[in-house]
Simulated assay, not measured.
Amino acid sequence: MTVFHRVTEGKLGSHDGCTIEDEVSQEFLDRIPGGLFRYRADDEGGTIDYVSRDVLELFGCATYEEFCSITGNSFIGMVHPNDRQRVTEEITSQIKCGNTDAVTYRLNRPDGAEVWVDDRGRYVVDDEG
């Protein structure tokens, strides 16, 4: 099981100085409707390090390995080739103004089916910058 940690300051959002750590399991993340994925924004193409089952289903994939072979395990590989430049420009522009982005694009599905998604992201700077 993969475990994700979220640290918040204070109890229930208060700022009394205590720290709360929550563990979120892979099973929990896989149950969130619509699908989730995470990628590194500091490398070319955005290497994916987490993808939920719903995202696999959107691509018509049975396994993570199949998804990786289709997308090259990168964010830009998820995006239909005809949408890649626009998506990259939109996300770059939005991140310059804040830490969130919203973009709509077609998926790069192996069967050629035209599937559009609304993608909402948050740019997070980790300890490594």
Rank of each mutant, 00 (worst) to 15 (best):
E66G: 11
I48N: 01
G72K: 09
D49S: 02
V125I: 15
R38A: 04
R109W: 05
T100K: 12
Q26C: 11
D111F: 05
C97G: 12
I70G: 09
S69R: 14
H5L: 02
G13T: 10
T71W: 06
A62P: 08
L36G: 10
F67Y: 14
I76G: 11
G112Y: 09
F28L: 15
L56R: 03
E27T: 15
Y50I: 00
Q94I: 00
E128S: 12
G77L: 08
E44Y: 13
G17I: 10
L58T: 00
D49C: 01
G17W: 12
S69C: 06
V79L: 09
P110G: 03
Y123M: 13
G13F: 07
G77F: 12
D22Q: 15
V115E: 06
C61N: 03
R120A: 04
L12W: 11
T100L: 06
V24M: 15
D42R: 08
T2V: 12
D127L: 09
V117N: 08
R106Y: 00
E21F: 13
Q26M: 08
G112I: 11
Y105L: 05
H80K: 07
A102S: 14
M1D: 08
G46V: 02
V24K: 15
G34Q: 07
E128L: 03
G72M: 12
Y39A: 02
K11D: 02
C18D: 12
T100G: 09
R86H: 11
E27K: 14
R106D: 01
V117E: 03
D83T: 10
D119R: 15
S74M: 06
E66W: 09
R53T: 10
Y123G: 06
T8E: 03
C61E: 02
G60F: 00
P110A: 06
S93M: 03
D101N: 13
F67Q: 08
R86Y: 00
D119C: 15
K96R: 11
S69L: 12
T71K: 08
G35C: 11
D111Y: 06
I95P: 12
N99K: 06
